[in-house]
Nucleic acid binder design. Structure first.
Lengths: 134, 134
DNA sequence: AGATAATATTTGTTTAAACAGATATTTATG
DNA sequence: CATAAATATCTGTTTAAACAAATATTATCT
């Protein structure tokens, strides 16, 4: 009811499709982890550098320097969420970026980052520890 | 040492600027929360609808239905990270989307979401609880 | 079939950060 | 100056999810 004081110049925005917000948040959260981002970037870089090279998990593990189990789960997550596609061949699984939009999204985010690196680096409300950030 | 078996056909991707990954991850993480996204969208919708209307915090609180303290902190985070800009006037603070790139980023993410809603909705590795999602 | 390689899953621990509620701070108004 | 409005900060609790290490599964090769 907002009380009848100032006529509340509110736009009264529609409640928005709540579920939709949660989904979109999940999508962003998937990219909101340095480990997964690094995996994604390893894939992006190798594709950009060599055409359409896929990498299998062991190669990715070596490149990103995380434990095998972590990489496996992160990859499952990335595949599940549509960022990466997987192709099983023998006992290996080959991965690659699934959608060109992923490149665009990451590139765009990087541009946004450029215009505000300092702020994001020092935001105490997102992850307080985060060592030096040299 | 990887053992000398198969000569590792690795691309040997550069370690990448690690810090940079962490920063980019933070940027995504900032959007990786339904509450913050909802706040952002309230701002985006009101701007898109009415030109350049700013909203002050109390209006936002009403629109998103979170506690005042939460909204205050989320807004501080969004401002700090460059997504939103704030203008103090009297005892109110007016907020608006800070950069057109924010629109592009969210819109692009939404497109990506469209092509994989089902996957993201059901990814058990990101947030296991997440009630119904009607 | 046995051995090993590649990947997946499980378990237990730890941590970033979301949240509510209470309180503090700042600015305007009677 | 006292009161109320608007926003900010603090405290304690809870939770999603990252992680390592161990184990399980699946596939290839001799």
């Amino acid at each position: 009811m907002i009380a009848g004081v100032g006529r509340a110049p509110i736009i009264e925005v529609e409640p928005i499709s709540l579920a939709d917000d949660e989904l979109l948040a999940r999508l962003f959260r998937t990219l909101g982890e340095a480990s997964r981002l690094r995996i994604l970037e390893v894939l992006m870089i190798s594709e950009r550098a060599t055409g359409s090279t896929e990498l299998h998990q062991a190669e990715i593990v070596r490149s990103v320097g995380l434990s095998q189990s972590r990489v496996s789960e992160h990859l499952a997550c990335l595949v599940w969420c549509g960022f990466v596609s997987a192709r099983i061949e023998g006992r290996r699984t080959y991965y690659k970026v699934a959608d060109p939009m992923v490149y665009r999204l990451v590139d765009l985010a990087r541009k946004l980052l450029e215009s505000n690196e300092a702020g994001i680096a020092s935001c105490r409300r997102i992850d307080n520890a985060a060592e030096g950030i040299s």
